[in-house]
Computed example of a mutant assay.
Amino acid sequence: MSAILRKGVGPVLSTSVEYHGFVYLAGMTADDLSQDVSGQTQQVLNKIDAALEEHGTDKTRLLQAQVWLKDIRDRDALNKLWTAWLPANGAPVRACVEANMADPRHLVEIMVTACR
């Protein structure tokens, strides 16, 4: 049986799970909630980079992304940073929807799956 590696294990969720060379990250949100959607998005992308690196992979190995925006009208601002962050010809499959956030100060949340 293959091992399941969990990091950041808490009572409700793990921040990441690795199994059979696949890395699943929990939804990432910004730490500085005083920033606008662009500032929060950049924070989240930086956190994704760091979390993937912990598992020995990076954004060139992204398979899937799920994006939640507090206001779907912020999609263009998100996409400007998202497309600059992605490697050339390396976009994963993605969904982007408007959602009520657990904390109304959160403007964006991103969850990704990658492989090693």
Results as ranks from 00 to 15, higher is better:
88 A>G: 09
52 L>R: 07
80 K>N: 06
90 G>M: 00
52 L>E: 09
90 G>L: 01
74 D>Y: 03
61 R>Q: 15
50 A>H: 04
48 I>Q: 07
58 D>G: 15
53 E>W: 00
56 G>F: 05
70 K>T: 04
65 A>E: 00
71 D>C: 06
72 I>T: 10
82 W>T: 04
60 T>R: 01
51 A>L: 09
50 A>Y: 01
89 N>A: 07
65 A>W: 01
64 Q>C: 09
79 N>E: 12
68 W>V: 00
70 K>Q: 13
77 A>L: 08
83 T>W: 06
53 E>S: 11
81 L>H: 15
79 N>D: 13
52 L>Y: 09
72 I>Q: 11
43 Q>W: 12
47 K>F: 11
48 I>M: 11
53 E>P: 00
65 A>I: 00
73 R>W: 01
69 L>W: 10
67 V>D: 03
70 K>S: 11
80 K>G: 07
54 E>L: 07
50 A>R: 00
49 D>C: 12
74 D>F: 09
60 T>C: 01
87 P>M: 06
52 L>D: 06
54 E>C: 05
52 L>P: 13
63 L>P: 07
60 T>V: 02
79 N>Y: 15
82 W>A: 07
81 L>Y: 09
43 Q>Y: 14
83 T>A: 03
61 R>M: 08
47 K>R: 13
63 L>E: 10
48 I>V: 15
88 A>W: 13
87 P>L: 07
89 N>R: 02
57 T>I: 02
46 N>W: 01
60 T>N: 04
68 W>F: 08
67 V>R: 05
63 L>A: 13
49 D>W: 04
45 L>I: 04
88 A>N: 15
84 A>K: 15
87 P>E: 06
43 Q>N: 10
64 Q>E: 13
53 E>H: 06
56 G>M: 06
53 E>M: 03
54 E>N: 10
83 T>C: 04
46 N>I: 03
65 A>L: 01
45 L>W: 03
44 V>M: 03
46 N>R: 14
89 N>T: 04
85 W>I: 05
77 A>F: 01
48 I>K: 04
43 Q>T: 09
88 A>S: 14
61 R>I: 02
63 L>N: 11
87 P>N: 10
64 Q>T: 14
76 D>K: 15
61 R>S: 08
78 L>M: 14
48 I>F: 09
83 T>K: 12
44 V>G: 05
52 L>C: 10
67 V>K: 03
77 A>M: 05
67 V>A: 07
45 L>S: 11
68 W>K: 12
59 K>P: 04
55 H>G: 00
